[in-house]
């Protein structure tokens, strides 16, 4: 049984069909990137998995149980950091747990420390840099009790350097906590560097156009980014996207 099963998911907004017959599965502990052009419906897919939208057709199964239209089954990190400005960093990362009904401050403090945020627990979000806020938002989803994490372009607002740092940090955290991750991005390098599998979505309406299984060994290193093989993969994926979005 797969961790997550997406079966023939379709949805329209008005007369515009956005998602058309999306089908894929995710295994326990797998890191899957979803790659697609802007406006293709990637966030919409997460809204469906998260239960705040109801599909016109199709179903979503988590651990074999149907969760279509049901909320509270996934841990989500939105495209913006979406922190609450009136909560301290510590209270912000505990929000997901609070909603589920239990606060584990000790674990939160430990994870904040590991993320290089020691000493900022009692600060407010506006006192942090963009990268730090993104880390806080990610820790919030990591501390939530749900085992499937959906990340919506978590690093797209960051500069190249911070982005790379955050990717490495994300990989180290993921290797330690082994959660299943769905990761939306429109950066091919990022998808290749992070994931086990890449799903390329087509545009208007979106369906899974192609699936790439990333062959690179873990732990991944910076050298990998400059290898000829990496470049070849990047080209393949790029061609695949271009062919459909034009």
């Amino acid at each position: 049984m797969s961790k997550l099963e997406i079966n023939h998911l379709s949805i329209s907004f008005g007369s515009q069909k956005i998602l058309d017959d999306i089908t894929f599965t995710a295994e326990e502990g797998e890191f899957i990137s979803i790659l697609g052009p802007s406006g293709s419906g990637k966030s919409t897919l997460f809204n469906l998995i998260g239960g705040i939208l109801i599909p016109d057709e199709g179903s979503i199964l988590l651990d074999g149980k149907e969760i279509t239209g049901k909320r509270g089954s996934i841990s989500y990190m939105p495209q913006s950091h979406a922190l609450m400005p009136w909560r301290t960093i510590l209270d912000n990362v505990l929000l997901g747990q609070e909603i589920a009904g239990k606060r584990d401050e000790k674990k939160a403090l430990e994870m904040l420390g590991k993320a290089g945020l020691k000493g900022y627990e009692k600060h407010y979000p506006h006192e942090l840099s963009g990268g730090m806020k993104q880390r806080v938002s990610f820790i919030r989803s990591l501390l939530s009790p749900q085992s499937l994490i959906c990340l919506d372009e978590p690093f797209s607002a960051l500069d190249e350097f911070t982005r790379f740092e955050m990717q490495n940090w994300l990989l180290s955290v993921w290797q330690q906590y082994k959660r299943t991750i769905l990761f939306i991005t429109h950066n091919i390098d990022e998808a290749l560097y992070l994931s086990d599998r890449i799903l390329v979505l087509s545009n208007k309406p979106a369906s899974v156009q192609k699936e790439f299984i990333v062959p690179f060994k873990r732990p991944r290193t910076e050298e990998m980014l400059y290898s000829a093989e990496f470049l070849k993969w990047k080209q393949d994926i790029y061609r695949e996207i271009k062919q459909y979005s034009l």
Binding site: N47, G50, G51, I52, R71, G72, S73, I74, S75, Y76, P78, A82, L95, G96, I99, A100, S144, Q146
Partner: peptide, 8 residues
């Protein structure tokens, strides 16, 4: 959206 998805 975050809160709704978290099941609030």
């Amino acid at each position: 959206n975050y809160m709704k998805m978290a099941g609030a």
